[in-house]
Write a protein that binds this DNA or RNA. Structure first.
Lengths: 222, 222
DNA sequence: ACCTGAACACCGTTCAAGT
DNA sequence: ACCTGAACACCGTTCAAGT
């Protein structure tokens, strides 16, 4: 029993990355293990190290594969603002579908996936007609905002998974806790609890992007 | 040899948290271990579990201790905008001093430290005189931007530490890589490489906050 | 009530040995 | 060149046993 199935294709970096993505998607961030991975690939743990430097490398590569797909249609025909919105939403949706991308992105400072995002965003920001310094400010503000949302989304999903509850149930429970806070100590949080329950993550995310775009526009207009 | 020193004070949650912060500061995120902690506290691993639920709980508590200090002067006399700037900078500096706070914050969705930040920011946003919906949008945009920067800062420091190089050397090396990218594939990133080398993290962070505040102001003015 | 520390069930990574 | 899989040095967490 449990006799290991002999694999058909030979091992390769791409097959390892594909299997990692599948594992990450189905079992969450903690689900990616060299043991689980080598079982799925019908090989030994050491074989994986022939194609991959270490776990961090593997995670970054998996993240990059998803980000590359998402950022592929980098240059659209629309206005820079609309393209930025589309890019941001694409990233949001990708992270929503693969929460582990959010947390991996956070840890992949200055690596391939981040480069892709910086470049795509930057090209559109550049088309906005700002000074060099404002370009840098605008691009990094957008980037950091997106990464912030990405990280939070990933954390929410991960928490819900770890406690084996539905993501929206988790947010609902959070709203309930918030609404019961001491009104003297937490007036704002309390007042915003009901909005937290019914809010639309995606719409709120886009509203934040628009806020930053608005800030950029008002700088340009000075 | 290595005879363990008998501790003088009795164990308590606060002492455990203080020791955790010291460990995290001196040895980085991976330095916090139940083994290292129990050695430093001259006790057994199990004893710690009497006062603390698990490692996540410990990390969140340590994070909360730092955030609480930082957010203490929540209500200043200045204008809401200036107070928001001060709060954001305070958080930036705290995370700069304790990089692990950045990554812990990211994973502590909806928990105590996050609540403090939301409340402090929210109170100032509220004083800005926006509609309820705009308040929510503004507060969460600011929060996510701050968290995004926090996460990146933490990642940069962690990476530098792991590779045993100076943080600024790391950023310098990144700038060099960027400046050597293919100008056809990465025109923006390449053009911005020199700025990356000489930039001031803190000033850039504040410029981003100002951009968001500008976006808020322009919405209010409509 | 609080502490001890061995034991358990995992990890990522390495490496001699095979093909 | 590529793969095997046992072994190593760690983890977080538990728990019977002590005080």
């Amino acid at each position: 029993m449990g006799k290991r199935v002999r694999r058909e294709e030979s091992l390769s970096r791409d097959r390892i990355i594909a299997a990692s993505i599948a594992l990450l998607d189905s079992r969450g961030e903690d689900g990616l293990t060299f043991r689980a991975l080598s079982e799925r690939l019908a090989t030994g743990a050491g074989a994986i190290y022939w194609h991959v430097e270490n776990k961090g490398d593997l995670l970054t590569a998996a993240c990059d594969a998803v980000v590359a797909r998402t950022m592929a249609p980098c240059a659209a025909g629309a206005s820079p603002e609309d393209t930025i919105r589309a890019l941001a939403l694409g990233l949001f949706d990708a992270i929503d579908a693969h929460p582990w991308v959010g947390s991996t992105l956070t840890r992949a400072a200055g690596q391939a996936p981040m480069l892709r995002i910086v470049e795509c965003l930057g090209q559109q920001v550049r088309a906005l007609g700002l000074s060099d310094e404002d370009q840098w400010t605008a691009a990094s503000a957008l980037l950091h905002y997106i990464l912030g949302v990405a990280g939070q989304n990933a954390a929410n999903t991960q928490f819900a998974r770890a406690h084996d509850i539905d993501r929206s149930d988790f947010l609902g429970a959070m709203a309930t806790v918030w609404s019961q806070l001491d009104p003297n100590e937490y007036p704002f949080t309390r007042s915003v609890a009901s909005r937290m329950r019914e809010h639309d993550d995606r719409a709120d995310f886009l509203a934040g992007v628009d806020l930053i775009l608005g800030g950029i526009a008002s700088r340009r207009g000075r």
